[in-house]
């Protein structure tokens, strides 16, 4: 259609489109947005500071910059700290510590998913007598802080002869009242018909768990994976107490080495912290969709 044609065409009746309403300034929304921005800054700024500091080559400069806006800026970025951390040899083979942490994380999460989901399922649908009492005990155990039982646990594991290895850093943390309860809550909310139909078809309790309920519990599995993973990754006091040598020592303890009696190697500690953060960040990003949906679901269902 030419321009002339356009010009000579009768003016069409304007279609009824909803009038564009000028958005009025909404003070509530503005405050909400500003609050969210501030919260986001508070959460992100330490991570940003960490990343920036890891690119500074002078540990004294890092300290001097702290408390000023220079802490968020690096004029001559360098990867020297990462190179130093990665190539630390002998007693402080950083890659080995990273691998140790990954092994501990993986084994704890896999073991935790199996044990806690089974326990949660039995508590929700099993024919066990006294389920209510056991459930109450599980909830009661949840409120006991880890630190308060840590010394008795040290004695137990040393008597069991499983100190200084991977097992001692994995086994005690597989069964968890919190995650058992999370799975229980999730399974208990699934329709009873599912369980009864499977039972009528002759499926055993384990079969119902494995073939029907477990595939439906992806959000719960993701949530527990992330929470357990973060917990396992950040363990600090426990590995210090139970590990004797470098063999199975995790990265969190390795980073503490940079905080010496007389000197603190902030540059290397920052680079090591960034390296420590990356795997768990990737882990979270991989599962976050289910993680968020599980939490939203939990909130709706109460």
């Amino acid at each position: 259609m030419s321009d002339t044609a356009l010009a000579s065409a009768p003016l069409a009746q304007p279609a009824k489109v909803p009038a564009i309403r000028r958005k009025r300034f909404n003070a509530y929304r503005a405050i909400q947005a500003a609050s969210m921005l501030i919260i986001a800054l508070v959460i992100v700024s330490p991570l940003f500071l960490l990343a920036v500091a890891s690119l500074k080559d002078d540990r004294f400069q890092i300290l001097a910059d702290m408390g000023t806006f220079r802490a968020f800026w690096v004029s001559n970025p360098t990867l020297a700290n990462f190179a130093e951390v990665a190539h630390f040899s002998g007693e402080l083979a950083f890659g080995r510590y990273l691998l140790n942490s990954l092994i501990i994380l993986f084994a704890t999460v896999v073991g935790g998913l199996v044990v806690n989901s089974m326990a949660g399922f039995v508590l929700a649908w099993g024919s066990l007598r006294g389920r209510a009492v056991i459930l109450a005990l599980v909830i009661a155990l949840y409120v006991i802080p880890q630190e308060s039982i840590i010394m008795p646990l040290v004695i137990m594991v040393s008597r069991a002869g499983i100190t200084d290895g991977f097992a001692v850093q994995i086994v005690p943390w597989i069964a968890s009242p919190l995650y058992t309860f999370l799975f229980y809550q999730f399974f208990a909310q699934l329709p009873k018909d599912l369980f009864e139909a499977a039972e009528m078809d002759g499926a055993s309790v384990f079969r119902v768990y494995r073939s029907i309920f477990l595939p439906l519990s992806l959000p719960a599995l993701a949530t527990v994976s992330i929470l357990m993973g973060i917990e396992a990754w950040n363990q600090y006091l426990w590995p210090i107490l139970v590990t004797q040598t470098d063999y199975a020592r995790p990265i969190s303890v390795a980073i503490a080495t940079f905080f010496g009696q007389d000197s603190i190697f902030w540059d290397r500690a920052m680079a090591a912290s960034v390296l420590m953060m990356l795997p768990i960040l990737a882990f979270y990003l991989a599962f976050q969709r289910w993680f968020v949906s599980s939490f939203v679901g939990s909130a709706i269902k109460g």
Binding site: V154, S158, L237, I240, V242, T257, F259
Partner: peptide, 22 residues
């Protein structure tokens, strides 16, 4: 055999070693 404990957690490590008879 060297047993390392971070400076800040040395006393906790020592207490654990005492309790575990290690």
């Amino acid at each position: 055999e060297l047993i390392y404990a971070p400076h800040d957690a040395y006393n906790e490590k020592f207490s654990a070693a005492v309790m575990a008879k290690q």
